[in-house]
């Protein structure tokens, strides 16, 4: 788990005030093979990470399990964005959060409509051009703003150093990716779930953890927390001859 990695734990401590909470019991499966051989596993678990201001306003949600490097990248971008939002007058914050997520959704949808060769470059360059226009300090590298990029590009390229050097963009980690164990989950999160998060937050008038939780799990992660069987009822009982 990422939180057991010393460098990652240090990163979290330096950039966030962290807390964890359980949304419900996790389903567990026990298979007794006899002879004292018992295997226990969890089933249908999932996670969501909310990045919030001190007053509880949610600025971003990272939905699903990511490999550690991609997770850190997402958190780093979100921390930078939270810092920017916190610097705004209170009355402007939610509007800026909504605008940001609407623009990110539009960019993701546009980049997927682009040619295969140009898609990744467009995701990198369009945000940079806009940010240079709006925040001249970026040109001198004064700010530490992270430019949101599709983490999918980091995963599929396999090596962060393979990305072009862009002024103002900090390379998060230049070591080669060592493990792709969660790469498929990460890629799926970026491709399928990230747009859903953007769509949800672009429309949210009062983004709070309490207000978002059930919809994040149901509409982004595909897990209805109000369903006692977490959506597995049909799978478990449809063709089961002995009833419940």
């Amino acid at each position: 788990m990422s939180f057991s990695h010393p460098d990652f734990a240090r990163f979290v401590a330096e950039h966030f005030e962290p807390t964890w909470e359980s949304v419900r019991d996790v389903p567990q499966v026990t298979i007794d093979f006899g002879g004292g051989n018992v295997v226990r596993r969890t089933l249908h678990g999932n996670i969501a990470t909310y990045i919030c201001l001190a007053d509880g306003t949610v600025v971003d949600v990272i939905a699903g399990v990511y490999d550690r490097r991609a997770y850190r990248g997402r958190l780093q971008v979100a921390a930078g964005f939270a810092t920017e939002i916190a610097a705004l007058p209170r009355g402007y914050r939610v509007a800026e959060i909504r605008r940001y997520h609407a623009s990110q959704l539009a960019r993701l949808e546009n980049s997927r409509g682009a040619g295969r060769v140009d898609a990744r470059k467009r995701v990198l360059e369009v945000p940079l051009e806009e940010l240079m226009a709006k925040r001249p300090a970026l040109a001198t590298g004064v700010t530490k703003l992270r430019i949101e990029d599709s983490v999918e590009t980091l995963v599929t390229r396999g090596h962060v150093n393979a990305l072009p050097v862009i002024p103002g963009v900090q390379v998060l980690d230049d070591r080669p990716l060592r493990s792709f164990d969660l790469s498929l989950d990460t890629a799926n999160n970026e491709r399928e779930r990230r747009p859903r998060v953007h769509r949800l937050l672009a429309a949210e008038v009062r983004p709070t953890v309490s207000g978002l939780t059930k919809r994040i799990y149901r509409d982004v992660l595909g897990t209805d927390l109000d369903d006692p069987l977490l959506g597995l009822g049909q799978t478990l009982f449809e063709n089961y001859p002995f009833g419940r």
Partner: peptide, 21 residues
């Protein structure tokens, strides 16, 4: 976490999961 965030300036990270961490 929010109270600490107000003091430190660091954003809050809320990690949610099914089950217990």
């Amino acid at each position: 976490a929010s109270a600490a965030s107000a003091r430190s300036g660091r954003p809050v990270l809320v990690f949610q999961l099914l089950g217990r961490l």
